[in-house]
Design a protein around this nucleic acid. Sequence first.
RNA 1: GUCCCGUUCGUCUAGAGGCCUAGGACACCAGCCUUUCACGUUGGCAGCACGGGUUCGAAUCCCGUACGGGACGCCA
Length: 464
Amino acid sequence: MTVRTRFAPSPTGYLHIGGARTALFNWLFARHHGGEYLLRIEDTDRERSTQEAVDQILDSLAWLGLSPDEPPVFQAQREARHREIAEALLAMGKAYRCWATPEELTEMRERAAAEGRPPRYDRRWRDREPGPEQAGKPFAIRIKAPLEGETIVPDLVQGEVRVANGELDDMIILRSDGTPTYLHAVVVDDHDMRITHVIRGDDHLTNTFRQCMVYDAMGWHRPHFAHMPLIHGADGAKLSKRHGAVSVLDFREQGFLPDAVGNYLLRLGWGHGDEEFIPRDRAVTLFDIKDVGRAAARMDYAKLTHLNGQYLRLADDDALTRDVLERLAKRTVLFGTDGAKRVRMLMPALKERAKTLEELTGAAVFAVQDGPPVMEAKAEALLTPEAKARLADLAAFLQTAPWERSDLDQWLRDYCEVKGIKLGQVAQPLRAALSGSTTSPPIDAVLWALGREEATLRILAGAS
RNA sequence: GUCCCGUUCGUCUAGAGGCCUAGGACACCAGCCUUUCACGUUGGCAGCACGGGUUCGAAUCCCGUACGGGACGCCA
């Protein structure tokens, strides 16, 4: 049987990093087994669901390379089917009508809390026929939970999880307004979508017992379950905005590459020996749900950043240049005539020195603009009278230098030898004049990319 | 409160009874490389939550405690 997995977010907000990891594991599991990976938008909460959130989720998944293999299923559109199954259960005697009012239920819960019992519906309508006063009154449909025995769920991550059936409630599957509840809709949808493996966050672990009631009552095969631990913030608490970036789109904006985010997320709670750098295709072959850890993991931005640097160094120079130019434009930096070309020329050197696209963008500003760069204080300090004199001298000699990337380095060394100075003595003031900073790509690369004319202009400006 | 799940360096993890003097990665510190910064490289710091068992032998198995997380809605 073909493996089919699904990612089922509810569109009540942006896709956060925890959801992204759930999607990734579903995707990897499906790919590893040559199966299909689907998306279901759980939009049954009309109050909180928005089209904007749906678009953001789709956008985030596409960015991560986790778009579904089939068009997304919208849960709200399947209401009739959910109702049909609820009524079938009723007809089979596996569910019943309940006329208990919200007030009655609240009272039940409060009394239970006061007596130290778990809050539970008392099943008052399970075996009771409606009287005349119920006529025309709205009712909910509740499923009959098994009274004895226990429910065992073999979980692919957590192992065998079991609970005494006495702990289970007669949960509502159809509300009194005729709409299905989440726990019921999920089961019907997963069954209809022929999902073979339900991989989700372990906040759903105990819900699984309740969902099993529906599978069992309908006589449907239960899918395999795998509940993965949640991601926490650096302080161990549930991940939230105060921990920094949580939305997938935030990571994109901050200059992380989707491959790096994917690799990081994969290693969070999953490992394969000592391997750390695991590109997507390698992940597909290695991934085994059984290797997923059982404990919650904390988000570590430093490690993500490090990994991002590794992917950045391997990234395509043209693609990086495009991205950086876009970011520069967004920063409203003024492009020089040859600005874009210079950024591209320096990209191989630039990307070795950055860990994120934002950092890369900052490092490219001096190259894209025309004219003397904005001087950092530390760079300014390098331009002593002595250094300025040297720059002026160098500018004159530079007019006859060969302007090739491969020749400039040697030419500079020769120049220093003739003048009897160390390379560092000329390189640093030169770096300051050309880039306005004390750090930059190798100075010969900067000279080469800037071109003789622009370089001369900046050196003379620095010398005066 | 009841039920479910978890606990190896600061963080992510390797580890399926002897291979463990507990390995790797990030972070941190020091050295090397070097025209700056990075990269790279060498070394260092640092951990089996605690208490009982079982066993010739336990990070690994069992029980308990502590701590953490999750679920208990006519929310998803």
